[in-house]
């Protein structure tokens, strides 16, 4: 998988390394900005209220 990506990146080794770094940072950004904020409320740490219908209070 990673070997395949590396082989398909353009440029010499330095350019590829730089592109890889940018890709990794972009993925981490998307995770922290969009994926994790969506996933985290599905875990129980948010359940701090007494129930008034789960949809409204979680």
């Amino acid at each position: 998988m990673y070997g395949w990506i590396w082989r398909h990146l353009p440029g010499n080794a330095w350019v590829r390394a730089f592109t890889s770094l940018v890709l990794v940072l972009a993925i981490v950004y998307v995770l922290f900005q969009y994926i994790f904020p969506w996933a985290e409320p599905l875990l129980p740490f948010n359940d701090v209220t007494v129930d008034q219908g789960r949809g409204a209070t979680r």
């Binding site: 981490v28 995770l31 922290f32 994790f36 996933a39 985290e40 875990l43 740490f45």
Partner: peptide, 14 residues
């Protein structure tokens, strides 16, 4: 790696 990143997110970034 994803799990470690998620733990960092929950413990630190929130």
């Amino acid at each position: 790696t994803l799990i470690v990143l998620f733990v960092v997110y929950v413990l630190y970034w929130t």
